[in-house]
Each structure stands twice: as C-alpha cells, then as structure tokens.
Amino acid sequence: MSCYEIVAREDFSDVTYLLEVRHPMMAKAAKPGQFVIVMLHENGERIPLTIADFDREKGTITLVIQAVGKTTREMQQTCRVGTSLHALVGPMGIPSDISHAKKVVCVGGGLGVAPIYPQARAFKESGAYVIGVVGFRNKDLIFWDEKFRAVCDEFIICTDDGSAGIKGLVTAGIEQAIAKHPDIDEVVAIGPPIMMKGCVETTRPHKIKTMVSLNPLMVDGTGMCGGCRVKIGDTVKFACVDGPDFDGHQVDFDDLMTRLRRYTKEERMALDHWEKEKAGKADKGCRLKKTIDNAVDGVKS
C-alpha cells in the first residue's frame, strides 16, 4: 500500500504553508499546470491542490496550501514531517501549453504565486523572455522571491500596502509590463478568481492571449461528477479533465465565483464541528489511564 509521506514542511505565514510529499512516480510525470487531489484521512474530503513544484531526482512533489477551511486547517495542524496523507492522486489535468511564446508575463496572486512558478521555469527553459509579476498583501507574506528571480528576466513584486515593490494589485504590475513591452505574446495568470478576472480585463483591450487556471470545487477530479463544470464561451467544460487552463477572455468568472460559494453554510458547519471536537478532546482526562483501562478490558473479555 503506497504511503504518501511528508518529507519537508515550511510555514510562510500563519495561514500559508508548504508540504513536500514523497511520490517518485508523480514527480517524474508531473508537468506545470497540473494538480493533485488529496484526502487527509479516510473520512476526509477530496480537495484539489495545484502542484507548486516537483523534483524528479528527489522524487517529491510540493504543495503550497492556505489554511482556509476545515481540511486545510486540519492539514496545517497534523501534517508534519514523517506523517502521511491518506490519498494522493495525480498529476491531474491537461498540462499547461508552454507554447512558443517568445515573451510571456507570469502572474501569481496570493496562493497563485506557488503554481505559477513551474510555469515560469518551463517558459524560461523553453527560451522565452519571462516577466514575473507576483502580488502579496504586505512584505511579511512574501515567499519564493529568490526562486522567481532565478527564472525570470524581470521580476515585479506588488503589495497592497506598498511595503515592497509597487503599491497595488498585480494588475498594476501587468500594466507596467505592457507599457514597457509592446511585444508580449502571452500572459498566464493564477490566483483567486477575482484576481484572474482583474488580470483578464486588464489584457483584454490590448488583445493579449491570457491563460488562467480555474479552481472550482471538485470531488473526483477524473471527469465523472461534473461538479467542476465551468462556462467557457458558449460551452460547458469540466475543469478537471478539459482544464484547468482555459482562455481567460472566454471564462465566465461570475459563474465560477457563485458556484464556489455553493457550500458556504456546510463549510461553516464543518469548522464549527471541528472546533467543538477539539475543545471536547482537550478536557477528556488522562490519556494514559484510558489506555490502561482499555487494555485491562481487552484482557478481561
């Protein structure tokens, strides 16, 4: 039985953390733009997480996660070096088209910074001129800037409060890049839907091809439930097998954002239930005594 062991962990902030997981076959097969589905334990839910990096020699893949809901918070608490995930499957999705773009802007907002990294690296390896634009709320939340500088010809940091780089959203960074380079072939933007929508509207008047990576709710990730369906132009596509990359100018972001709110009530319930459970466990008495009692009962029966 495969064991998806965590071999490294880094905390970038009190909500963002990195997990490096051993999976030699997946490390060999993973390509930029692909994602995995993870289950923390056997009663867990299946959640999609983009592959932020892969090391084919070491045999590991890297996930960068934001603790938002019950599962990602529980993972933040329990996933230490040496622990394992119950299920890990991938690499899923159609790999990004690292096309023959000569000049490309790779944009990552918040958590999108991690998944845009392998794309930037792949474009660089294919010989393109890479302009990296990343956005964080403030300078304390910045991570991986060295990694980016290593693969980008130009690197623009944007912070909401101006504590580092440009003051503004990543769209300000894109505008700066467009103003300086009239010959940009492609923009790739990954981040929260509202950010991707903003990027797409920024590039639309300039008619620059903009690829986005969509993140709807998913269950199986293999194209059999339709939960991740998104509207692309006149058609409906499943982000897990027809994506996750799509032409940003065709995406109906409002529909995506509405569907992402589908389980807000249940998400709240799950968190409340978990908090209650943790509080209950805290005052359950001496664990050693319980272990002894259980063992004695076992012998008696």
Partner: peptide
C-alpha cells in the same frame, strides 16, 4: 455522515 465525515452532502 457529514459533519462527522468531511464531504458535504447536497
């Protein structure tokens, strides 16, 4: 079994 199991049931 939600919320004892994590996947919500529509």
């Amino acid at each position: 079994d939600f919320p004892n199991a994590d996947t919500p049931q529509p």
